[in-house]
Nucleic acid binder design. Structure first.
Lengths: 190, 190
DNA sequence: ATTAAAAATAACACTAGTGTTACTTATTAG
DNA sequence: CTAATAAGTAACACTAGTGTTATTTTTAAT
């Protein structure tokens, strides 16, 4: 028994994402979230002790679903296909990578937040290992330049989602061009 | 006459930069700045009506000195040298580019802030024009791939300063590798 | 020494966000 | 139809940051 909830977990996460993208971690408040969900602020405190707990919870959720997708990279035989797949899933939901980068700002205000931070750390490790395998494959196959530092290869790929497209270049052209630069650079061959 | 100032404009800008890098725009407060400069918070209000005025002022100052340096790009004859020069000045003070990206968060809280925002906008235009010239040179010389969108070329170059170097790859190797990727990509030639 | 001016500050009122408590509303099993 | 309970909320006390005013301190010219 008891009355019906006014919002689902989906609603909650969607609103959390929206506010994080728009306002950043420090600009995120329970007041804004309450308004977005059309509930009182006190209601939110029934579910989470503070915003850090909600946000880290949300991040763990997103990271989980990204890792789930990323696992499919092993379905692709050759390195070229894996590269294409990786870029595609990163750009399929580019905002969550922007959000993930806010993780380092979050103070461990209580036990649950600490747990979530640990979980995030372990998820990050899992992700890094999968990506490391991808880079290794590229290097042993002599398809990736051996002298480039692995963290730079991965860092640059993930950084490309944050390049602002102020002039509104069509998404398809934008991504194709990014792939081209990552593969063979901006310079011509002569 | 009158008593001596407790800090110079240099001190002020150095402290502003430090806090902006560490805490971001929203985490920047006059309390933190006052503590950093060892003055009372009220003192700061003698110089600036609010933090937006100070921060935009500081940004105009930094942008000015960056533009001054950037102008030297014309001293270099060929495109390759210009490219090298550009990367070098960007990485010489990478933090200011991170700070510059905070500009869009700043609300125009008073007239002076509005003026500063206009000035920033015009500086940005100047910068873009110089960089546009650089890209054009590369394209007419057939040294830059003609089919890549100009804003992507520039956006990606500037984005590379924000790639986190968590594993502490030596700066020289890091930058050399970034140049290599931008020039000819991560992939080998076969 | 006195005084005018610049610089600095303490202290106040105000605002926005936080977290908690006591109470109300909606739902359904019996 | 009523009792149990899950869900929701209003209202309070608290904190951190903002912006202003009235006052004090330091300096140097007279």
């Amino acid at each position: 028994m008891g009355r019906d909830k006014k919002f689902t977990e989906q609603d909650l996460y969607a609103a959390t994402k929206k506010i994080l993208v728009k306002n950043g971690y420090q600009g995120f408040t329970f007041s804004l979230l309450a308004k977005e969900l059309q509930v009182s602020r006190a209601t939110l405190y029934k579910y989470y002790d503070n915003k850090d707990e909600l946000i880290t919870n949300y991040m763990v959720f997103e990271m989980d679903s990204f890792l789930e997708k990323l696992k499919e990279i092993d379905n692709y035989q050759n390195f070229e296909q894996q590269f294409d797949f990786l870029i595609n899933i990163i750009f399929a939901d580019s905002e969550i990578h922007q959000i993930r980068s806010m993780a380092f700002e979050i103070p461990a205000t209580n036990e649950k937040v600490k747990e979530n931070n640990l979980k995030l750390k372990s998820q990050h490790k899992d992700m890094y290992e999968m990506l490391q395998k991808f880079v290794s494959l590229g290097k042993v196959n002599h398809q990736l330049k051996a002298d480039l530092p692995d963290p730079l290869i991965l860092g640059l790929i993930f950084q490309t989602v944050d390049i602002p497209n102020h002039f509104g270049v069509p998404q398809v052209e934008w991504i194709a061009s990014i792939k081209e630069i990552i593969r063979h650079g901006m310079f011509t061959k002569d």
